[in-house]
């Protein structure tokens, strides 16, 4: 079978690591959270993703070209990160490849950090974080850590597919979803997911820089948010507001 998405490794990726996924979604919550972890822990670039399904875009850092979707890591943490909106047409092969790759690296826990849009977000000082998991023992782990579990409803988009493919392939996976804005970058929600991730992973993450730079992040993230919103519309993301039908 011809691969439509490829992961090109630049350095050896660790085995048995935790893998975070910072993909563009509502409020850019996971993206902001993962970007913060990458810079706080000084994770190195270990791989990049390539596909004809991705837009013809490179990003320049210090004058040098980089693929916009890259994987970073150290000895026990891996983080996928995208500087471009994932096209709706590419989201299935993209997430399938990501999960295949994670499985090949014996990832011990796949973590999808994201937002859960709520209409009254302006009125919420401290967003609650809800959890979902790929198996029952991980659901229990979330409950033990005091994280409220999402019992029903829809998930739509890259994180939904990561959870689905991980469950199919027995790759342990959790989603941490903070109450967030849909269409506005939400660094406060990102900080809320990181707090919960910190409890689960035992990693100490200094959130002070994220809190201080909140307004700056919101200014910088406007264009990314707009393009992400467009792709989420194509993925029918608003189905997350739908009431599920169980008769």
């Amino acid at each position: 079978m011809v691969e439509t998405v490829n992961i090109i490794e630049r350095k050896v990726a660790p085995s048995n690591a935790i893998m975070l996924n910072g993909l563009p979604d509502v409020g850019l919550v996971g993206l902001i959270a993962t970007s913060h972890i990458i810079s706080e822990l000084k994770l190195a670039e270990i791989a990049y993703m390539d596909s004809d399904l991705f837009p013809p875009v490179i990003v320049l850092h210090e004058g040098l070209p980089h693929a916009p979707i890259r994987i970073f890591g150290n000895t026990d943490l891996i983080a996928s990160f995208s500087e471009t909106a994932i096209p709706a047409d590419a989201v299935q092969p993209f997430t399938r490849k990501l999960v295949d790759w994670a499985q090949s690296k014996n990832v011990k826990l796949m973590v999808a950090m994201g937002g859960m849009p709520v209409q009254n977000r302006q009125d919420i000082m401290e967003p609650r974080v809800f959890g979902a998991a790929s198996n029952k023992s991980l659901l229990n782990m979330l409950r033990e850590k005091g994280i409220e579990v999402l019992k029903g409803g829809y998930m739509v988009g890259p994180y939904a597919l990561i959870m689905r493919y991980c469950a199919e392939r027995n790759v342990p996976a959790i989603a941490l979803l903070a109450e967030s804005f849909y269409k506005y970058p939400d660094p406060v929600a990102a900080a809320a997911t990181l707090k919960e991730f910190s409890k689960i992973s035992g990693l100490k993450i200094d959130l002070s820089r994220l809190t201080e730079k909140g307004e700056e992040i919101r200014l910088k993230a406007r264009d990314m948010m707009k393009r992400t919103e467009r792709e989420l519309g194509r993925m029918k993301k608003t189905q997350e507001y739908d009431l599920p039908l169980y008769v």
């Binding site: 506005y184 970058p185 700056e216 200014l219």
Partner: peptide, 21 residues
Amino acid sequence: EPLCSVFVTPDEVIVTADLPN
């Protein structure tokens, strides 16, 4: 240009805009 949204409810239209800084 700020990010803006428009919501239509039965009684009113709510326009929001993200205006950091």
